[in-house]
Computed example of a mutant assay.
Amino acid sequence: MINKKSWNEFRDNGFLWWINMILHAFGWVIAVKIDDDGNIIDAYPARTNVRGFPEEDNTEGYIKLSKYMNDNAAEILKESQE
Rank of each mutant, 00 (worst) to 15 (best):
K4E: 01
D37K: 06
I19G: 00
I41P: 07
L65R: 03
H24S: 06
E79C: 14
W18C: 03
A46G: 08
N72K: 14
Y62G: 05
W17C: 01
W18E: 10
I40H: 12
W7H: 11
W7A: 14
E82T: 15
L77C: 14
I76F: 10
R51V: 10
G14Q: 06
I63Y: 11
T59N: 13
R51C: 08
D35G: 04
E55I: 14
I22F: 15
N39E: 14
D36N: 09
N3H: 03
S66M: 08
A73K: 07
V50S: 06
K4M: 00
A25R: 15
M21L: 15
L16K: 10
K78R: 15
E55Y: 01
G38K: 06
G27R: 08
G27K: 03
N8D: 02
N49W: 07
R47K: 12
A31I: 07
L16I: 11
I76Y: 00
Y62T: 13
H24F: 14
E82H: 12
G27M: 04
I41V: 15
A25M: 13
A43K: 03
G61P: 02
K5C: 05
I41A: 08
K33N: 14
G61K: 06
R11M: 10
K5G: 05
G61H: 00
S66R: 08
I22S: 15
N3V: 02
H24V: 09
M1H: 15
I22A: 15
E75M: 11
G38S: 06
A43S: 10
R51L: 09
N49R: 10
N72W: 02
F53W: 12
G14W: 04
I76G: 01
D42T: 07
A74Q: 12
N58E: 01
N39S: 09
N3S: 01
R47A: 11
L16N: 02
Y68A: 02
E75D: 11
W28Y: 11
G14A: 00
I63D: 09
K67E: 06
M69V: 12
T59F: 09
I19H: 05
A74E: 10
S6D: 02
N39H: 04
I76N: 04
Y68R: 06
D71C: 02
I19W: 13
N20Q: 09
V32W: 02
Q81D: 06
I19L: 11
W28L: 13
I76M: 12
L16G: 01
N72I: 02
A73C: 09
Y44A: 07
A74S: 08
D12Y: 01
K4G: 00
F26D: 08
K5F: 00
T48K: 05
F10A: 13
P45S: 02
V32Y: 03
